[in-house]
């Protein structure tokens, strides 16, 4: 419950402050969001599986975001940024889907 409140508070702060994102950072935002969603759904599944670990969550979150951003950066430098972004989105998207499916099985037994 408290983490959910934290999430909502973070959303409110972000919407209220509306900080301007530097242009060079903007290409990485979508990928960072997808990576963050992957980590969050993984954490929810781990909670439901009874094997949640806060350090693993934090580390996986940060590494996901950083690696995803790095892949996009690398792709941009090599001239294949959009293809690599697509790859990252596919991999993370599949993981999000399977994690959400597992969460669904936990919650609804279906």
């Amino acid at each position: 419950m408290i983490p959910v409140l934290g999430l909502v508070a973070g959303l409110a702060v972000g919407l209220f402050l509306d900080p301007s994102v530097p242009v060079w950072l903007q290409p990485y935002l979508p990928i960072a969001v997808i990576a963050a969603m992957d980590a969050v759904f993984g954490a929810i599944r781990a909670i439901l599986d009874g094997i949640f670990n806060d350090k693993v969550f934090v580390v996986s979150f940060l590494s996901n975001v950083v690696v995803a951003a790095f892949i996009v950066f690398l792709g941009d430098q090599l001239g294949v940024g959009s293809q690599l972004s697509t790859g990252v989105v596919v991999v993370l998207g599949v993981r999000i889907f399977s994690n959400v499916a597992s969460i669904r099985r936990h919650l609804f037994r279906a």
Binding site: V8, G14, L15, A46
Partner: peptide
């Protein structure tokens, strides 16, 4: 399992919400 109410988790949840909000505004 560890608790979900540790400082780390709450801080990261805050950060995640912030990230989502900023991304939605910026993009």
């Amino acid at each position: 399992a560890t608790s979900t109410r540790t400082v780390l988790v709450v801080v990261l949840a805050l950060l995640t919400g912030f990230l989502f909000a900023v991304a939605s505004q910026a993009l």
